[in-house]
Design a protein around this nucleic acid. Structure first.
Lengths: 197, 197
DNA sequence: GCATTACTTGACTGCATCGTCAAGAAGCTA
DNA sequence: TAGCTTCTTGACGATGCAGTCAAGTAATGC
């Protein structure tokens, strides 16, 4: 970070303050929160944010990793520790959906707001790739409907994202209960014995 | 309509023109379309719309019946003609979801945008009441999961509403295919023999 | 301690939309 | 056709957020 070393002391302080404020504010309100709010919390003016980070996207790129990566990684690790293709598949989906409910910022990432942002896209792809592997395994075992595609999986997460954004009134318990209906709909229907060739 | 008879000839013409433009514009773009657009199509100024209909809501109230009631009624009639509680329940849900995809205005009504609007709420309640009856029948027959509540049903339609609004890129065929997953998830899971007491 | 340069500020422009209103246009009546 | 009344107009004010920049402030090096 030679570039950051060259900053004047006050600028250095501000960069840190803005980062911390952004983490705080985005964590609570999602990535769409007005930058005036971040500026207010950081105790600087909006101009300073633009001067330091170039743009709204620049600021998001600078904090998204710290904001979300950990949580996505945690889910992957927790699922890796489980046994059985169906359990693993469903637990991953379930935890992802709950993360979307609990963390507006994580949801914004998973919904691919700002598709131009590289660190954000990277995070997203990592999760998608893992999900795809679980889907493959579950379908190979014949426990998840064979006509479910990786795109369907992406869509299921995207859909959940717009739902949690729009239906802010529902309780977590209700949200959680309804997820079971969806999961149940993804299992191999009775009458089908195994996945296709 | 004595009140309308008293309008001056040009005003009369404009009211009609605005109504027709609103039907046209709302049908295509949903109830959130800017009134400037309606004004443009009607060939009047925005001021005239406000003068004649009082507010955006006033205009919507004046056309929503003609815009959506017919379609909701059609679905109910088509479903009434079917046999079997599961078929009826699923066909109603399916047709409602497809209506939401095909008609932005109908979707806006079902999603309860403008909860203050009386004709809009009436339409909505009519649909909900019918759905509830189908749910009762299907649960009594043991073909739909007994823990599905009428609120869940409302929620399923609401969810679909925000999804079609947000995911405008998906093809109708994909949307349709995925609905089957959801329907499947609402059926009685294996291992449960009949609905509760 | 002073000049220099880096940094910060907040008022400003731009955009999109809602809804209003004074002034002007047009229909209506005698 | 004159004069009254109704109706229409479009510029305007308000809102909320993004992003910019000239002018002011403060750290730094000598």
């Amino acid at each position: 970070m030679t570039a950051e070393q060259r900053l004047r002391a006050d600028a250095q302080r501000n960069v840190e303050g803005i980062r911390r404020a952004a983490l705080d504010v985005f964590r609570t309100g999602g990535l769409a929160t007005p930058l005036d709010e971040v500026a207010r919390v950081a105790g600087v003016s909006k101009g300073t944010i633009y001067h330091r980070f170039g743009s709204r996207r620049g600021l998001i790129d600078a904090v998204v990793e710290e904001l979300v990566a950990e949580q996505v990684r945690e889910i992957i690790e927790a699922v890796e520790a489980l046994d059985g293709p169906l359990v693993r598949f469903e637990e991953w989906l379930l935890r992802t959906w709950l993360l979307q409910f609990d963390e507006p910022a994580a949801n914004d990432v998973l919904v691919r707001m700002l598709p131009e942002s590289e660190p954000l896209t990277t995070l997203c792809d990592r999760a998608a790739k893992f999900g795809r592997r679980l889907l493959d395994d579950a379908q190979a075992a014949g426990v998840v409907r064979p006509d479910l595609t990786p795109e369907d999986l992406t869509c299921l997460i995207l859909e959940r994202g717009v739902i949690v954004r729009a239906c802010t009134k529902q309780t977590r318990a209700d949200y959680r209960r309804r997820l079971d209906f969806v999961l149940h709909g993804l299992r191999t229907p009775p009458g089908i014995t195994a996945a296709g060739s």
